[in-house]
Design a protein around this nucleic acid. Structure first.
Lengths: 203, 203
DNA sequence: GTCTATACTCTGATAGAC
DNA sequence: GTCTATCAGAGTATAGAC
């Protein structure tokens, strides 16, 4: 999905600076609210120089999104039918929460796109994502049929994992505003979510 | 919080048209991504006429946000210490989910503001919202001490209610993209969330 | 109260020197 | 590869006629 590979070390560094700055700006202001000036300043480049590396604002945005999608689906892909059901789900929750903690800007970029009606992600959502969810819903349903986890709507179970884990990145301003400067929200969240899903899934 | 009251029926209707159109646009594109052209078109007014009713883009946005906040906090305010604990929480969940279903644009406006770091809501979050959450956390903790609901981190319990209910409005594009055109997501969500919180809270 | 016309700024993108 | 200069269009906002 990436554009032509960089030929020099400088090019690689600049491309990375641009994408990093763009992630910051797009995740905070959305596509239309973001400006090339902001991205250029964040990357430490002039605006024309930025447009030497990417042909347009849209190209930068697309590069970010296509990088993002695979990484975002990865933890769910690893949900293993052969594993112990409750452990598998708890591991998925733990991984997803870790992604919110370690890549909050990526999470917010994704959230902003969905919030806007997902104009540039619709095909991916209705294709790859939908297929993957359907596949894993089959696995979850089989576990339920075997009495190894409680019977629940499998897709809403997946939705609830997304909602609960991504909340800590996407609504970070609210979480930290309400909690104040106490302990790390993610430590308490990890405990809370482990308890929640353990109780929810117990057959 | 509202501006000076409208003097004529036409003014009242136009102000309402503007706020409705602005809600649509701001909730989808965020403050910076929204344009007065879009709002004016949605309201069926010319751009200068729109600026006769509100002095600036910022003023429209502020009017929306100040209307929003009270309505948003209301369901939590009604969590009643004198009621039956599990019922009280389940009622709160049901109300919050109904708000997502009935006012998705308001939910997305709020979500977008938080996503952006809540520049215009910070004081409200660290003031009113924080105080209200603290107050209700005391109630929840008392119920836990009395053994009437399971012991959990009370603030994260509230976070989880927000995350799970608002998800269906804020990520509607994803939810409907994954589920397809089947049954109403909100019916299944209501069942799922009732089950989830019933199991979670059982002492 | 509502419109046309317009001022002025910002934004995405290009040309061309170095 | 990077810069200065600049363009065309969109954006917010105002002036002033009706």
């Amino acid at each position: 999905m990436d554009d032509s590979p960089p030929r020099t070390r400088i090019q690689a560094r600049n491309r990375e600076s641009i994408l990093d700055a763009a992630l910051e700006v797009f995740s905070q202001h959305g596509f239309r609210g973001a400006t090339l000036d902001q991205i250029a300043e964040g990357a430490g480049l002039s605006k024309p120089n930025l447009l030497y590396y990417f042909p347009s604002k849209d190209a930068i945005h697309e590069a970010l999104l296509s990088q993002l999608l695979d990484a975002w689906l990865d933890p769910l892909r690893e949900l293993d039918e052969a594993g112990e059901p409750v452990d598998e789900v708890l591991t998925y929750v733990r991984r997803k929460l870790a992604m919110s903690r370690d890549f909050p800007r990526e999470s917010r970029l994704f959230a902003g796109e969905i919030l806007r009606g997902a104009p540039r992600l619709r095909t991916a959502i209705e294709g790859e994502l939908r297929d993957l969810v359907a596949e894993k819903a089959v696995v979850l349903t089989r576990w339920m049929d075997e009495g190894r986890i409680a019977r629940l709507h499998p897709v809403h179970l997946i939705f609830s994992i997304w909602a609960l884990t991504q909340h800590y990145a996407d609504f970070e301003a609210q979480v930290s505003g309400v909690l104040g400067q106490g302990s790390d929200p993610y430590d308490d969240a990890a405990d809370y979510l482990r308890t929640l899903f353990t109780r929810l899934l117990a057959p």
